[in-house]
Each structure stands twice: as structure tokens, then as C-alpha cells.
Amino acid sequence: MAGLDFEPALAAALTRHVQGITSVGKLTRLSGGASQETFAFDAHTASGTLPLILRRAPGGSRDGGSGQGTALATEARAITAARACGVKAPEVVYVLTPQDGVGDGYVMERVEGETLARKILRDKEFDAVRPKLAYQCGQAMAQIHQADASQVPELRLVTGPQQLAEYYERYRAYDLPKPVFEMAFAWLKPRIKEPKRTVMVHGDFRHGNIMISPKTGLAAVLDWEIVHRGDPLEDLSWICINAWRFGVTGKVVGGFGDVPEMLAGYRDAGGDAYTVEDVRTWEVMGSLKWGIMCMGMYEVFRTGYDRSVERAAIGRRSSENEIDLVNLLIG
């Protein structure tokens, strides 16, 4: 299959550098976007088969960690630092080097579990674990925030006020005045403060990036693509925005739990004490950010970079965030 011609190079790298691996097979592309490609494959050892994942830069290119994303080698180091604090995340098995000829990227273990919000929120098999998830997510975020960021010195620091200013600049560049967004920016400006503490932030902690087991609940935190340093409230609030509740509006945390449960898990795992109000202020920030990202999808369509109907349609989802902001700010 075209595009998988790097399998021999991948096999050579892994058999040379990872003890116990004798061969690889079943390389299958799972997804690919502008920023990363993901492949599943099996590695064979004397004692059995290891299910693995390869994440690499598109087309096997050299990845500079451009734009919002983090370089893949940095992402791998951030996952390792998080795991050292007890975070359930796939173990990084190998980080590719230029000599391997596969492109920039890394290999990690392939974990089992569900990432589809609709199943997690509605299927019977998750009934038992669903009430625990908000607490478990709080614990996981506390652990992520305890990671030793000095292990990953290249992580970019983005504080709340800085992020607000950057998003305002993006919004203004789109030149599409939206009074609700303008109001949210004005409302947030005096309320989004410098962080009390600067920590390693996952940056995209939400459905799709958390893997749930019907037996144990939170099984893995995935997709560390925009990991950075910043305010703990950025992670604590992002999973609370209405977009990630998938219709279960009354359960603020991901449609499965309440903010006090999440904050209790956060504190019990050694995190700072935050209030429901702190999270709500940052929830406004989250909805605004997602709304501006939707505007960005339209921009990608308008400028001709991606003419898909999907890109165009997502542009119209900006108004979902406008109504969420109206509900938050006006009530």
C-alpha cells in the first residue's frame, strides 16, 4: 500500500534499538492530518506480540513543531515525564532519530479502550464507571501538573493573559466582527489572571483524547500534541466546555460528572485547591477559543488550502460557541 514503504526502515530501527524486538508487521494507517500521522503495527518478540503505535510527522518529514503543535520528540519526553508522576498514558518505546530514515516521530504502546464520547456517555457497559470519571480526570490532571517540566525545557510557556491576547489577534485577523466574541474578550480581560503556578499542561484534555475502560474508567490520556507550560485551570476547564458534553448539558465535566467531583480528585492527588467559579471563568475562555478555532477552519477553506465541505461546515459551528457564551455570560 502506498505510503507504507517505510516499514523496512521502521523494522530495522526497532530491532536495532529496542531490546527484544525481532520483527514488525501489520503496519496500518489509522489517521492522518496536517500535523501528524498515526499508524498501528505489531512488534514480535521471543515472548509474544507487542501492539504498538507510530506517530510521525506527515509523509515522514522533519518536524519542526511548527504552529500550535509541539515537536514529536518533545511530545514523547512530555509523556515520559507525565508517566513518571503516575499519569496513565501509553509508554513511549522509542523516539525516531534522523538516522532511522522514517521521519520524525515516536513509537508507543497501543492501549485498549473507548474514546468515542457517544458510547462513553450512553452505552450501558460504561454505566458503572461513568460516575467515577470526573474524579479520575481530576486526579490525572493533578498528576500531569506535577510532571517535572525541567525534563522538557523546550515546552512553550503560554499564560492565560498571553493566550487571550493571541486569540484576540487571530480573531481580529479573520476580520469578521462577532459581537458575542468581542463581549467574551472584554469580559475575560480583567478576569483571566497570571497563573498562581506554572505547570506542564496537556492542553487538549477532553473526549477523544481520554481512553475509557468499561471496567476501570480512565485508562489512558492520549494526544499530547499541544502540551505546553501554563495555568492548571486551562486543563481543568477545557473538558467542561459545553461542546465536550455531547448533549448531556447538566453534567459539566465531559457530560459525565460535576466540577466539585473533578476538583476533589485534583486536590486528593496533590493538586491546588480551585473553586467552581475559577473553572467557570476559564470555561468562558475555552468556549471562546473553540469558537475561534471554528473560524480558523473556515479560513482554511476560504483561502483554498482545504476545500472540503467538512471544513466549510465546521465554520458554521462557531455559532455553537456563541450560544454557549451567551448562556455563560448572560444566563
Partner: peptide
């Protein structure tokens, strides 16, 4: 802002949970 946004979402995503709220 409320009325304008309600109308926008009635056009864009009438099933969105935030509109019901």
C-alpha cells in the same frame, strides 16, 4: 446578543444542546 445568537444557531445547528438551554 441573546436573540441574534438564538437565530444564528436555529439556522446553523438547531439540535445543538446550547440552543435548548
Amino acid at each position: 446578543l441573546r436573540l441574534t445568537t438564538i437565530d444564528k444557531v436555529r439556522i446553523d445547528q438547531p439540535n445543538y444542546s446550547g440552543l435548548k438551554t
